[in-house]
Amino acid sequence: MTITGNEIIHQYLRHNKKFPHVLCAGCGHGIVLGTLIRSVHQLGLPKDDVVIVAGIGCSGRLAVYVDFNTIHTTHGRALTFATGVKMANPKLKVICIMGDGDALSIGGNHMIHAARRNIGVTALVLNNNIYGMTGGQSSPATPMGSVSMTAPFGQLEKNFDTVALASGAGANYVARGTVFHVRKLEKLMVKAIERPGFNMLEIITPCHTQFGRKNKYKTPVDMYKWIKSNAVDIERFNEIDEGKRGEKFPIGTFVERDLSGLEERYYKLKAEMRKARGEK
């Protein structure tokens, strides 16, 4: 009998961990975890060939629940650990799960340099607009004007455009998905995992507990409705006049380059030098 849907997910979870998971009701991180498991299952990767590296924050908890090789690293440094793993053993599929604070502020430098080096790592940036676990402080992804614990009268700073940042830094593949459009997210994630080089996938996920409640979203469902009405396919987004865009944001694939990863170049150079010296 073939199994489908959530029964696949149950096979990849660590059942000695406490379930249901720690994330709040309606948190999109669970959907991301499910999509990640389905993508890995779809690609047919063995559990031992997948490495999940996660930083600190709500997104860091995801690494705890899945039965792959997992590392729970220090805040913002998930990409540096992932770089080391990939350089040491390029056969592994290294997937880095980071939150917006993790990837853009504390690990901001690692993010741009990993993209510049084009190391063969898949970076999933779970953008929930806030530092959720530490109590709702403003993160670099908090939109201007929205209320947070450290900005009770509205955030004065502009938020980061993660997609523009990663594509400007030279990432091989840059895409954005949301947790409402799960089938599209799954397609993007499969691509982000199987392609060579640095692949960055930004995922818009709602944080109702810390962000939504302070910003006129009464229930978690209201946040999903906001995503449903404001996420627009990139082709359709480009057709909308700039003045009429409002809160709408594009989803889909933004950049697709075919440059070889750092680890490929390194092992090629190593082989060439060994050959020149007469070693095998």
């Binding site: 849907g5 959530n6 029964e7 994330l23 959907i31 499910g34």
Partner: peptide
């Protein structure tokens, strides 16, 4: 429902 359940609590067969 199966795809969007954040807690993997629904199975449709």
């Amino acid at each position: 429902c199966e795809l969007h359940c954040p807690d993997f609590a629904i199975v449709v067969t």
